[in-house]
Design a protein around this nucleic acid. Structure first.
Lengths: 197, 197
DNA sequence: TTTTGCTGACTGACCGGTCAGTTAGCCTGT
DNA sequence: ACAGGCTAACTGACCGGTCAGTCAGCAAAA
């Protein structure tokens, strides 16, 4: 792959962790599962990462980079279209196979946050990133006159991030979409264009 | 307490489970923890509930009853006020001490849903109940002319339930409110009164 | 006497983490 | 060219601890 064997190996381990998480979920994930996906021994994994927790924290950082690559303001076109595309990507990050499994695993990992500040800090970054992307698009949309002039970008961003969070939660718990997309589009319509969807 | 010793004992176990969940969270919850709160042995717990999973499923049913008692359409007053009160209760079910701990534990339990249909079914009931309560209030509000006539109660209910779910998720992961209440009130304003909060 | 409710001791499985030892590759002095 | 020394990476066996669930037996109620 690259000319950096250390980087290659780290990528291998992250990919193995990804596959193991999709296959087993977070609750049932063992170091052995990850080692199996990596086709190396469990001890080799502990050679590179002292603890399971450390490995998972590293994985979250790795995932955040992919996330900011996939879920990003397209930067061109109407603010309405950009916002719509961003939200769609946030609900269904593209470019990753086994999407549903990964979302499920990430959802399980969120349950660690209340008990572990380092996990919480990593997960906060995902939310804050999306919040800021939305806020920027809304601000620009208001300035360009595409959106109503009386919307508050900050409140709007919080509203939409909360909806995306809730959407993930509902889709995972209820198992299907359940009208989440429709509801979010309706909320955007209410707020930014003053229409009712 | 009551004159039904079986019912009393069941209540005792449910209360013990509640306290153990608040104290340890779901991820770290053991049968021993619940037995300790109950001041009986772990084997006694297994005498009444064959498996830990069975006990937890029973607990979810028990909790659903409390939920429908606490979180309910007040039935009197303006539809706007009733909806606001319902949403407030849904975000912070009253009448239970250690509220934050219980919400956290319930959030952790949600992570079981993708892997266990019986857990999913129990959790779906919470969402569906809230959805239907909201939908009814919105429908009545539209009929009474309090809300705009062009809102769709079904979509609105999905929107608000998703927001409440997302609100719980954000409060637990981020640790504080983070403007969720404000955002939800703004969304209600957008949709039902056509104003901007 | 039988049933109900319970206890303490126990089992079996699992899992994170450790450790002694092996292998492959690389540098260095001769 | 090559022997010796060193290190990074890895393996297989193992340890300590945890936890759900079991079981034989005891006490009190019915």
């Amino acid at each position: 792959m690259s000319d950096d064997p250390v980087r290659d190996r780290t990528d291998d381990i992250m990919c193995a962790t990804y596959r193991a998480l999709c296959r087993h979920g977070h609750a049932d994930l063992t170091m052995q599962d990850i080692a199996d996906e990596w086709s190396k021994s469990k001890a080799a994994l502990h050679y590179h990462y002292d603890t399971k927790r450390g490995l998972l924290l590293a994985f979250l950082e790795h995932l955040f980079e992919s996330y900011t690559d996939c879920v990003t303001d397209p930067g061109e076109g109407d603010a309405t279209d950009r916002l719509g595309a961003l939200i769609d990507d946030a609900l269904d990050p593209p470019g990753t196979a086994a999407n549903r499994e990964l979302r499920t695993a990430l959802f399980e990992i969120r349950a660690c946050a209340p008990h572990d500040d380092e996990f919480r800090a990593r997960l906060e970054r995902f939310d804050r990133y999306l919040h800021d992307e939305i806020e920027r698009i809304v601000t620009e949309g208001v300035e360009a006159g595409v959106f109503r002039s009386d919307v508050d970008p900050e409140t709007t961003a919080t509203l939409l991030v909360t909806l995306v969070d809730g959407g993930h939660s509902r889709r995972i718990v209820l198992g299907d979409d359940g009208g989440v997309h429709t509801a979010i589009r309706a909320a955007i319509g209410d707020r930014l264009a003053g229409g009712i969807g």
